[in-house]
Design a protein around this nucleic acid. Structure first.
Lengths: 327, 327
DNA sequence: TCTCTAGAAATACAAATGTATCGCAGGGCC
DNA sequence: GGCCCTGCGATACATTTGTATTTCTAGAGA
């Protein structure tokens, strides 16, 4: 897919350079110049197919960014309602989209814009994980925040998913030009005792201290369906029935909560390596970026629990949230 | 399905509002959501044709903005060469495009970006005219610079061209949220005497004083071919041979200069209502935004004359400038 | 040297997009 | 009321774009 493109192992530096030059020119001609793909191919002496591929990759890898300046009246009013209903400092609502991944990307980009407005050099950021959060990165101003740092707020999956804690935090730190700290541990320890042992590790304890002290946190959440990347790991899936039985509707930073936002009483919650939801309340800016109708229950639970003070979601989800109980 | 009801061909204001809502949604779905035009049409209950037209209009009226983050190595190096060759503080070079209007727009947008980086609340801006300058407006941050003001640097054409002095300055002031001052006079007075009389007008004298005091000036220039909007006015065209005979290669703010940048000795130059080129030298930031190969002589003349300290042009023109004599 | 395979080019085709044309209806104007 | 003019809907069509499939090529490894 469009992970960093690996070149042939012959002349990496020179070849890469040339590819980058062609890409820059193709993208510019297409998006800024309005040339047709065929015209670009002729002009640059490459095939149209190649032009097409380059444009496709640029669309997804964030090297081209479109910005729409027309505010959607309906979404703006939903934002206001969300803010007053759940006592939020800010809310962003994007239109509902049929394609789930496009929806996630749209929410992520809006979250990136919101986060961008809160950042400046020296501010620290904590991040969760998920495809939604990864999508926010291209939206951030690529500045050199040399005094800032980024930290993961939770342990990682053992299997790379493209949106793992480690990947998201690395990319975010990279985009900001900031240092990066990882919670080098699995999300769930095998036992409560091993968790205690891990938390005693000086490095991990230090990162958790940092996590508690961030100026801004960017979070997502998961439900308990097979659509959730976390819920579909065997660790969680095996306990799914138990969790549902205990009233869980989904997770926030790996901790499962019920419909009211209360942390459910279940052993899994004793094995989480992450910032606890309650600890979020002392962070100045906390952004929950998540959408799609099926996640409305979890999002509602988080908002009612008062764990975050900002939310980014989609239109359909916003309506569902407003149809449910208030905080 | 969320189909907003839109059937009220009665009241214009309400109707306009509805149109704007539909437009915002169409544009968002297309550019941010990646839906197809047909999908959008179905979803919103309008025809694909309408969707297509709305998208077309959004593309040109600046309500959608694409930004490419890949720098073009060739253009960057041309920028550096221009800066050192002509002693400029900054230079921007965009790739050459076959379509002339697309080229102008691209240059204008780059100029807008450059100007945007120089502005802050309280700074004042002077502008010339032309399609290139008009294109820079969508690129400016739409902020509320309530302490800033914008002023025209030259008189206007009597016929609206969409890029007249009045139009460009109005739109620029509008985008910045700043006050606007017009040089309410024709570019060329009928006689030198009538010019003197006009300049004695308190309002006009005041605006000219303001023009001399701006913090930043955004300028374009014209050659003496029929392509130039100014040269093709009857006033100038009638004198074209004389001007060419006097060595003129084009105009800067309505004043005709020769290949070395010297103001040519011609009566028309005594009838101009505009800031004089020499007066530009005392303005802190002066941006010349102009391109296309055929304008290289004029642009070169202006750079050699040292009238501006920043330039925005296209690749082909930049190469031509660098092939010519230095300052 | 041969084969195997990944990647690029060529080809082909289906979908999406942009544009021209025609006819109709509403609104402004006389 | 009649008339013109604008703008939209419908249709049709040419162009552009995206993608699947096949073919070709060159390099890696046996």
């Amino acid at each position: 897919m469009n992970v960093p493109e690996l070149r042939s192992p012959v002349s990496p530096p020179e070849d890469d350079m040339e590819v980058a030059r062609v890409k820059a020119r193709v993208v510019w001609y297409y998006f800024m110049g309005g040339l047709t793909q065929q015209e670009i191919a002729d002009r640059l002496g490459i095939t149209r197919l190649r032009v097409n591929r380059i444009i496709g990759s640029a669309r997804t890898d964030g090297s081209v960014r479109v910005e729409v300046s027309l505010p959607l009246a309906e979404c703006v009013s939903l934002e206001e309602e969300l803010k007053s209903r759940f006592g939020l400092l800010d809310a962003a609502v994007v239109p509902a989209l049929p394609a789930h991944d496009a929806q996630q990307r749209a929410i992520g980009e809006a979250a990136g814009t919101m986060l961008g407005g809160l950042l400046e050099d020296g501010r620290s950021v904590g991040v969760g994980w998920g495809k939604t959060l990864r999508a926010c990165i291209p939206r951030l101003p690529a500045r050199r925040f040399s005094r800032s740092w980024v930290t993961a707020l939770m342990g990682g999956l053992t299997r790379g998913s493209g949106a793992n804690t480690f990947e998201v935090s690395t990319q975010l730190a990279d985009a900001l030009g900031a240092d990066c700290y990882y919670l080098a541990a699995p999300i769930y320890c095998p036992t409560e005792e091993s968790r205690e042992a891990l938390l005693a590790h000086p490095g991990i304890a230090d990162v958790l201290r940092r996590a508690r002290a961030v100026d801004a946190a960017l979070l997502s959440c998961g439900d308990l369906s097979e659509r959730s990347l976390l819920a579909s790991t065997s660790t969680v899936w095996d306990m799914r029935e138990e969790l549902l039985g205990a009233g869980a509707v989904g997770d926030l930073l790996g901790t499962f909560i019920d419909a009211e936002g209360a942390i459910v009483d279940h052993p899994l919650n004793q094995r989480v390596v992450a910032l606890a939801p309650d600890e979020l309340r002392s962070i100045p800016a906390t952004i929950l970026a998540s959408g799609s109708l099926y996640k409305a229950p979890v999002i509602g639970a988080i908002l009612r629990g008062g764990y975050v003070n900002r939310v980014v979601t989609d239109e359909a989800c916003a309506r569902a949230l407003l149809a449910g109980p208030a905080r």
